[in-house]
Simulated scan of single mutants.
Amino acid sequence: MKGFALTLLLSGLVSVASAQMKDRIAAAPVRVSNGGTPVSADELTRQMANRLHLNEAQYIRLKAANQIKLARTDEIQWQYKQDPSTLQAKLQELDAQYEAECRRILTPSQISLMHAEQSQPVLPKTEPAGNGLG
């Protein structure tokens, strides 16, 4: 009887922990990048930290800014999906707010590096020239 009660108690705890984890995962905004892979605020901030050489304080503040931007982007896209012109205007406004927050967090050299990377055109990967026969 003790074994059964203990098993019942442990399975209850596991289900509660699982439900809490699902809530936590659902609360974290995840975007799909142009390549089709999901990008979370953690992943985005980690990529920026590698490229911009952020210190710990910058990383923490930028991660919060990225979480807000991703969540707000999803909200705007859902709210204005029927009105493309308003959608574009709201997304541009959000980008301006994000840019202002980045200027408060990053150094001028990091900002210029971020802009240089954003302005580079993304070229599709091509196969080396060949006859196409295998």
Rank of each mutant, 00 (worst) to 15 (best):
Y59H: 15
T107S: 13
S33Q: 10
S33C: 07
G132S: 06
Q77C: 06
V16S: 09
Q120G: 05
S112Q: 11
V39F: 06
Y59M: 08
P29D: 01
G3E: 00
P38D: 05
R24H: 05
Q77F: 04
T45F: 04
A116Q: 15
K69F: 14
S15R: 00
M21T: 14
Q88Y: 00
K125R: 07
V32G: 01
L62H: 01
E101Q: 14
C102N: 08
R24V: 13
T126N: 09
E127P: 01
K90R: 15
S119R: 05
A129D: 09
Y98N: 03
L52A: 04
T45E: 01
Q92H: 10
A65S: 15
D42C: 04
T7K: 11
V32D: 00
P121V: 15
L133D: 05
T107M: 08
L6E: 13
W78H: 14
H115I: 12
I105Y: 02
L6R: 06
L106C: 10
K81C: 05
T73P: 05
T126W: 10
L8D: 05
D95E: 12
Q92V: 04
L9F: 15
A5C: 09
G134I: 03
I111P: 00
M21P: 02
Y59C: 04
K90C: 09
A19D: 11
